[in-house]
Design a protein around this nucleic acid. Sequence first.
DNA 1: GATGAATGAGTCTTCATTCAT
DNA 2: GATGAATGAAGACTCATTCAT
Lengths: 204, 204, 204, 204
Amino acid sequence: MKTTPRKAPRQERAKATVETILAATARILVKHGYDGLTTNAVAAAAGVSIGSLYQYFPNKEALVAALIEDHIERMTAAIFSELSRVQALPLAAQVRAVIDLLIRAHSVEPKLHRVLTEQVPRVGRIGKILELDAIGQRMISGMLAMHKGTLAIRDPDLSAFILVTAVESICHRAVLFSPERLVDPRFVDETCLLVNRYLGIAEQ
Amino acid sequence: MKTTPRKAPRQERAKATVETILAATARILVKHGYDGLTTNAVAAAAGVSIGSLYQYFPNKEALVAALIEDHIERMTAAIFSELSRVQALPLAAQVRAVIDLLIRAHSVEPKLHRVLTEQVPRVGRIGKILELDAIGQRMISGMLAMHKGTLAIRDPDLSAFILVTAVESICHRAVLFSPERLVDPRFVDETCLLVNRYLGIAEQ
Amino acid sequence: MKTTPRKAPRQERAKATVETILAATARILVKHGYDGLTTNAVAAAAGVSIGSLYQYFPNKEALVAALIEDHIERMTAAIFSELSRVQALPLAAQVRAVIDLLIRAHSVEPKLHRVLTEQVPRVGRIGKILELDAIGQRMISGMLAMHKGTLAIRDPDLSAFILVTAVESICHRAVLFSPERLVDPRFVDETCLLVNRYLGIAEQ
Amino acid sequence: MKTTPRKAPRQERAKATVETILAATARILVKHGYDGLTTNAVAAAAGVSIGSLYQYFPNKEALVAALIEDHIERMTAAIFSELSRVQALPLAAQVRAVIDLLIRAHSVEPKLHRVLTEQVPRVGRIGKILELDAIGQRMISGMLAMHKGTLAIRDPDLSAFILVTAVESICHRAVLFSPERLVDPRFVDETCLLVNRYLGIAEQ
DNA sequence: GATGAATGAGTCTTCATTCAT
DNA sequence: GATGAATGAAGACTCATTCAT
């Protein structure tokens, strides 16, 4: 099924309408979950007629797809810009920076993030997510390969998989299910330890 | 919404019906996802009338709930029995045993496992999962506390959270998204390394 | 649709079963109304299998029909026996006796009486009720005709219709909707007045 | 359960749809009774899609509730306007006017009136009916109190209950079950007599 | 472009009734 | 006779989507 927006809004007003609709979609998604998401409800919540909604989105899934696209794009941008920014730092600092970053990334609209994550496979957007993951892993893999001499690893690819998965999950679960852990500074310290010891990076 | 079974089957015939219905539910869930799951489809696939289905399950969610319950129960039993069985082994062996076990646990009906995992929040069974997680964490936390002298950790509780999350996720993702990794013996080795180095357990 | 009982219970035990079923029907009718009456619920409430229920009653309506038959029979018997009993009394006393009687008749299981009354048309038993009414009217008409000389009426038939309807309704509504009126002795007095003055019977 | 209309029709077209739906509801109600009333049948009879029906009515009962509301409103308006109009007439004339009126009120769509009356309790609209009754009684009670000196009554309240109930029932039953009585002019005369003699109003 | 009325395929669910054991 | 498992027609209701105005 086609889930790309029907047409790019030309006028300013139209762009605003699209924004409003997506915002309403996000709100309903957070409040009622994917099953509670109906196009009519979105239109109503956006203060737009159902007809207008279909002017910009060919079907319901397109709404969610747009939201996911958006979400991923923002996370991607944030993460990758930060990643390249820290390349110059010593390894231990890089590790901490990435972990900090991931936590922050997960903390932006965590509720929406959660719904999106959980519903993603169903909207056929899992490809996007996996792709994102793959990019991240390749990047980390590259970084590991670069420092292979200094690190206690054999297969950068395998290690990247393990590290990205582990750290991403830890951040994800901490944000969603144990937010109280986030306020404890030892949480990040300990996560850094997991990575540093595995890689054989000297602790500070 | 109530999702507990309506009544327990008394006769053999009825027990078989319930089994058939649950099997059909699993099949459809795997094939068409939660959204493709309709009570009528389940009944048809089970070769049972829709009325029979509703004799035992008060609504659609109860079907999935029953499946989840079952799944969790089996995983729990397998994991915990194994956990206590390995208590006597040296730490490094314990780590490997648990990881092996988790992979095996995730490999039983992985497709169903995946759907179930993803749909859990929508059926309100997330409590069960979290509870299971909590139990696992407490168990690991206890083990860590017992060996605190020998291990490079400070807070057994925090470390347990990190380890359980990391290892569980790694196994989960490997089974579901990178099954090719499982055939590589270095995959388990490397995961063990992550844990051993973090805990400061001597590598063999 | 046939609503007569399927077969007369021969054995004592069977008779008891029928009683139990009807009692359960009445209970459910009172508690949940006609729409809440399901054969399965009746069977369960009666502690009988649904199969047994259908052994004695061919369908759901037969249950209600039996109850109505029963109810009418009991009311009829009570009323007519009393009516003939009071024939010898002076007219004013007869009037009071009948009114007293009607109130008492309506007060026996008023909840059931109400449901039965309201649901009667739907079970096609209104014929029975109208017939009962007709008999009552004919009886009163006869009584009026007998005393035509002493009474201020012209058409005994018409007067009977008016009186029976008025008195019956007053009792019905008092019992069901204004039970507080029943404890006031002036209520009966006043109803007697309505009748007596209409008929031109000297007040005591 | 909520039985208020879902949304008011704004466009002319929509208003017509609502009208059509209610008309179809009335037709089916009269023809097949409440149990024969299905939303699908109503939609079909109205020549409207089932979806349209649900745009305006949240559920089946709302259909009947709307009909009842309508019916009551019309009866109320007619009755009360007439009641105040006749205040100036002599008492005997007032009595006759009210009785005439009630008969006419009951004669408007008597079949629908009957079904509505019988089904009312089940749609939770009995409150409305009782309220209407109460208003009527209070009005009559007031009238009686005003003329207490001239009338042979003690408790205007009690007398109002008796009279309103009696007259209302007589009209109701005459219209529904003995329409042949209505053509007989003596029917109204006789009903007036019941009231006049009870109140001690001189017959003309 | 916008509106919102209308559509109807598709689901869930109930419950009277049958029938094998 | 009794049991209760099984049946399936029937009905309420939703919601993505279209289309006349």
